[in-house]
Structures are given as structure tokens and as C-alpha cells.
Design a protein around this nucleic acid. Structure first.
Length: 280
DNA sequence: CTTGGGACCTGGCTGC
DNA sequence: TGCAGCCAGGTCCCAA
């Protein structure tokens, strides 16, 4: 499931292949992917446009065009952006997945938006703020200070796990990295956000930045169907301590990783290292 | 304003 | 062996 580190990896690996290239032809294979305008107008609006830059905001992938419009893609759960290559076949997880759109470049290469569960979305907009304007701060950005974070948390009395996954609070964290971040900060996922002590808040702030930065360095986590544009996997999941590690030993205390459900989402944590109501 | 529950979607798994 | 039904989770929509 692509979260911030996965989308950031896709963006940086596509940059040398896309920037400066022109879309020769765009074909929508699944019209439900296109939001805000008919699929035909999406195709026509992109044909002939040149890519002048790539960006990422939260989990949104942004392709900036020469006419100031932007193509925005959200991969949701199972979306992939794959640069097709005749010399290699798709991973088995993707071979029967739906091709929701293809973007043919002026050098003959084809970027394919492949999405097994069809939850991903694409937009073509005049102003990218229409889509990403309501997102909270970028967790790796300079303006995401511990003080800013503390003010955001003070407004919420929901479980911290749920608040971390709320894109209006902080952009880019999903279910899996929320668990890793909370483990790193030794905070129980059910702790109410506005009850975190200043020291816990500060630990959480630095855990967010270190966990995400390390995952980017490892090119994202291939726990399910995530592949990079060249079909290679990321290795960030090899470093996971609790996410998807049910009943495994906590590397710190040797206790067993437990799973609970928070706001309908599977949540992994170490009950001995992450205690409710404690804020060291 | 915030919170929380349901819907969407499909392949893989569980249990009868 | 077959198959119905559940589960995974990012986001949107809705009600309280």
C-alpha cells in the first residue's frame, strides 16, 4: 500500500524518464479512475502536453505540465506506476491487474497505471490545490516543527493512531507507517492525541521523520503489491519492527507483538514497550 | 468544528 | 475439492 515513502520513491525514479518528455497518447482503460471530467477529455487534455516537473504531496503523485495544468494520481491500496519494458515481464501480482490508463511518451516508452483493486484515482486540474489543498503539512518539510505538530494534536481527542492517519493533520502517513512510528516513539496507539505529554509529542515528531526518511532511503516497503516503476521491490519492510509482525518478538523487550483494531484498521504494537497512559 | 461508521474495490484466505 | 463470506486499508460521505 503506497504511502509517502513509496510515492516519493516512484516520483524520484520516474523523474529522469518523464521530465521534458511529451505525452504522445493517453488511453484510459477504466473510466472510473478519472475524476472530475469525462475520460475522453482527460485523454485529449493530456495528449501533446510536455511534462515540466514531478512533485509529491502526501500520497498524491503530481505531474506538472507545460500549460500549468497538473496530472494528479493517487494509488490508494494497490495502484502501481510501471514503465513498461519489453525485456522484462510484470511481476505475477500485477499480470492480471487492471490497466487503468496508459501514458505513451514521445520516445516510445509507456507508463502504465496498473491497479488490482481499482481504488486509485487520476485527475487533470488547472490548479493542483483543488486536490491537495486540504492536506496537512509535509512531515519531512521544514515547516513541520515539533511545535506545529503539538498544536495540531491538541485539537484532536481521537486515538493517536487515527490522528496520524488523518491526511488533514499530517500528509502521507498510512496504516503501516503509523504503527512503525508509534512503536519507535513508544506510544500506545489508543492514546488520545490531546493527552500526549510534551515529551511524548516530541518523540513522536522525531519518530515520524526518522521512520519515513529511512523508508525512503530503502525505496519503500513492498509488503503487498507495491513495485517501483522498473518493477523492482523496495526493502523498507525488512526494517519493520511491528507492522505485519503479529506474534513476532519485539526487538527491544522480547515480548510478543500484538494486533488490535483501531478505527476499523489493523494495528500492530508491543504492549510492553507501548503502554497506555504512560508518557516518559 | 470533530468523531466514527459504512461504502467502495478485488484477490486471497478461512471455514464449512 | 468447492465455494460463500470475510478481510485488507485510503479516502469520501454521512450522521451525530
Amino acid at each position: 500500500m503506497p504511502e509517502l515513502p513509496e510515492v516519493e520513491t516512484i516520483k524520484s525514479e520516474l523523474e529522469p524518464c518523464l521530465v521534458g518528455r511529451k505525452f504522445e497518447e493517453v488511453v484510459v482503460g477504466d473510466a472510473t479512475a478519472v475524476q472530475g471530467l469525462p475520460a475522453g477529455r482527460f485523454q485529449d487534455g493530456l495528449a501533446g502536453r510536455t511534462v515540466c516537473g514531478l512533485a509529491r504531496r502526501g500520497k498524491f503523485f503530481i505531474v506538472r505540465l507545460d500549460n500549468k495544468q497538473a496530472l494528479i494520481i493517487h494509488l490508494r491500496m494497490t495502484g502501481n506506476l510501471i514503465l513498461e519494458d519489453k525485456d522484462r515481464s510484470l511481476p505475477s501480482q500485477l499480470t492480471h491487474a487492471r490497466v487503468r490508463a496508459t501514458f505513451k511518451l514521445d520516445n516510445g516508452r509507456v507508463l502504465a497505471f496498473i491497479d488490482r483493486r481499482r481504488l486509485g484515482r487520476v485527475w487533470l486540474v488547472n490548479d493542483e490545490k483543488e486536490i491537495v489543498g486540504k492536506l496537512g503539512p509535509e512531515p519531512l518539510g521544514d515547516d513541520f516543527s515539533s511545535e506545529v505538530f503539538a498544536k495540531l494534536l491538541a485539537r484532536h481527542r481521537a486515538p493517536i493512531k487515527a490522528v496520524l492517519c488523518d491526511q488533514r493533520v499530517v500528509a502521507g502517513i498510512g496504516n503501516m507507517y503509523a504503527d512503525e512510528v508509534l512503536y519507535e516513539a513508544r506510544i500506545h496507539p489508543l492514546t488520545l492525541a490531546n493527552k500526549l505529554s510534551p515529551r511524548a509529542t516530541s518523540r513522536l515528531h522525531s519518530a515520524i521523520r526518522s521512520v519515513l526518511a529511512k523508508a525512503i532511503a530503502n525505496k519503500g516497503a513492498s509488503v503487498d503489491t507495491y513495485f517501483r516503476p522498473d518493477c523492482r521491490q523496495g526493502t523498507a519492510h525488512h526494517e519493520f519492527k511491528v507492522a505485519h509482525h503479529l506474534h513476532d518478538e519485539c526487538p527491544l523487550c522480547g515480548g510478543k507483538v500484538q494486533r488490535i483494531v483501531v478505527r476499523g484498521r489493523g494495528t500492530y504494537f508491543c504492549p510492553r514497550c507501548q503502554k497506555l497512559g504512560r508518557s516518559r
